[in-house]
């Protein structure tokens, strides 16, 4: 399939209804793994993505964490980037116009240290061209203030969601942390707070030790685990949350193939985000979409919607 300008847009069978959005594909690029799209534009047709969730963005620029920021682990990696980003104004002026040229849905991932900051960020993006929605990062394991604190308390999670909802007309997706006792409680809280969608999961907190230097490898000491190593853990959490809330769920966690994506859809996710897989294969989002169509053929699904929750019936 091609669009009006002759650009490839993928199979019509991959068209996905995700809450308020109709997307060309159920495969979105996950926050923190795709920058603001620029780096990967040379490797794949951005317009074939279901959407791009940007790098976590704060009000002011952030330098991020002390290196080393990344260490490989079995079938996974730990990262502690510390939300390095140029700040919301630079993102709006210098980054988002680039993405807008591709017509790909852009969801801006937001990070704040207070509910008011989340509200200010959400309000600032209201009406910005090309922005389809926001994703609230209440789950970053690598920053001291804000972030995960909000994701670990149902009351705070709800407050942050409400604050953002009041501040913007844009659909609000809330990204949950797996580093909690009951993710279902948090999911209910953000749904009650008015979230339009829930995405999960962010990374699992982890650590690696450098035996020779006798200290943790990462500059931040601990980091967030991602990659295929977390896939079964994330899949189970998606199953729980999708069985609890009424709003659409976006599955994230170690997806590297079409079959992996299909598993998250069957568990109840309406779409998925692909993160770490892009570091190995910069074309991952498009390849996985093509593989997913092959999975649909093989397993006898006519459209994406038929797969959603198919394992729950």
């Amino acid at each position: 399939m091609q669009d009006a300008e002759g650009q490839p847009v993928g199979s019509p069978r991959l068209i996905t209804q995700l809450g308020p959005w109709q997307l060309r594909s159920p495969i979105l690029a996950a926050s923190g793994c795709f920058g603001y799209g620029r780096e990967y534009a040379a490797y794949l047709p951005l317009q074939r993505l279901g959407g791009i969730v940007t790098k976590g963005t704060s009000l002011k620029p952030r330098l991020g964490d002390l290196p080393p920021r990344m260490v490989e682990t079995p079938a996974g990696m730990l990262n502690a980037i510390g939300l390095q980003n140029p700040g919301i104004e630079t993102v709006i002026q210098a980054e988002l116009p680039f993405l807008h040229r591709y017509g790909v849905p852009v969801i801006v991932n937001l990070y704040g240290t207070t509910p008011e900051e989340y509200a200010e960020l959400a309000a600032r993006l209201d009406g910005v061209e090309g922005v389809w929605g926001i994703e609230l990062n209440i789950s970053c394991p690598n920053v001291a203030a804000g972030g995960i604190l909000f994701g670990q308390s149902p009351i705070l999670a709800r407050q942050v969601t409400e604050a953002a909802k009041r501040a913007t007309h844009l659909p609000v997706m809330v990204k949950l942390s797996p580093n909690v006792t009951s993710i279902v409680e948090i999911a209910r809280a953000v749904e009650d707070g008015g979230a339009d969608l829930i995405s999960l999961t962010n990374t699992f907190r982890g650590m690696a030790i450098d035996l020779h230097r006798r200290r943790p490898v990462l500059g931040n000491l601990s980091g967030g685990l991602s990659g295929p190593a977390i896939r079964p853990l994330a899949l189970q959490l998606v199953w729980e949350v999708a069985g609890t809330v009424q709003i659409p769920v976006v599955g994230i966690g170690g997806i590297v193939s079409g079959d992996d994506a299909a598993a998250f859809l069957m568990a109840g996710a309406s779409a998925v985000q692909v993160g770490t897989a892009q570091f190995i294969d910069p074309t991952a989002c498009v390849r996985i979409a093509d593989e997913l169509e092959a999975t649909m053929n093989r397993e006898g699904f006519a459209q994406i919607a038929d797969m959603v929750g198919a394992a729950r019936q």
């Binding site: 923190g32 793994c33 795709f34 920058g35 620029r38 780096e39 990967y40 490797y43 790098k55 991020g64 290196p67 080393p68 920021r69 990344m70 260490v71 990696m77 990262n79 980037i81 390095q84 770490t276 892009q278 570091f279 910069p282």
Partner: peptide
Amino acid sequence: SMACGVGACLSCV
């Protein structure tokens, strides 16, 4: 320590 190699992940800074 590098992950993506293309400037997206901000690991190797």
